[in-house]
Design a binder for these strands. Sequence first.
DNA 1: GAGTGCAAGTCTCAGATAGAGACTTGATCG
DNA 2: CGATCAAGTCTCTATCTGAGACTTGCACTC
Lengths: 143, 143
Amino acid sequence: MTRLPPENLARAVAPDNPMAVWRQAGFDPHDCPVRNILDHIAAKWTVLILLELHLGPQRFNGLLRALPDISRRMLTQGLRDLERDGLIDRTVFDTRPPAVEYRLTPLGQSLMGPLLALVGWSTDHGQVIASARARFDSAADAA
Amino acid sequence: MTRLPPENLARAVAPDNPMAVWRQAGFDPHDCPVRNILDHIAAKWTVLILLELHLGPQRFNGLLRALPDISRRMLTQGLRDLERDGLIDRTVFDTRPPAVEYRLTPLGQSLMGPLLALVGWSTDHGQVIASARARFDSAADAA
DNA sequence: GAGTGCAAGTCTCAGATAGAGACTTGATCG
DNA sequence: CGATCAAGTCTCTATCTGAGACTTGCACTC
């Protein structure tokens, strides 16, 4: 609780902020590029799938074993989404029983740079965030 | 459908891949750092909230106007999550009626680098992804 | 002093989504 | 004949999301 009135919340003109650019460009909220693309990339399981495939090509059951608490249904769906977006390739081998291999496409590879940077940030700041959470939760309990 | 049997799916030893590091460190799937932290950062609305706050401090109803199709409920929840993680600050001014201002903390600021890189990647490759999707969907229709 | 407005939420309910795990398919093994 | 394996699909329930009505406390108008 502060007494300063919140006058003049000046919006910075941040030339590197996509939000500012989109707004100038007309910004149709139903075609928001972040939501359209990042919603897939950053969905619950896709980051893990991409990290695992970054280690090398992998098969369906291999991914299932590598990502211990993903369900088959969610793995299938995540793989389909990534394939649809052109980030991974799906190859069927006609062995018996058939095997299916997933691997990153060049487009998928090109995503790994930014994605690993973000994952790196989150592991770098994991402790700080954990203690922020603990502080917030104990303040909430006190209230 | 290919005829090469998928033998020896050698897992690359990628020293920069967090997955490999975690696995060596014991990797408790229920304490997965990516999911714990990225699930919040990369949740449906938080990226948009962070981008908007990167333009400058903003109040509740201001965010509601800025992010046209977010609901009050989801905005409240997203802001709470970000506050709990220490990425944004919430300040109440005792004007009448009271005003509440949200702004990035230094920790939140430090996230913007990697996050903007990822958003940049997604806008850079938006066209490629859109056409990959169109190709995938028309192939599915054909089948 | 009754009515209206405002900021920043909370509440409720319906519909969408995620997860657990049983089932499918076709060929090969005991 | 029955079991097994890979790569899914199907079903059913539990959880989550979104729309939007409602709340609270004060100030301002009539």
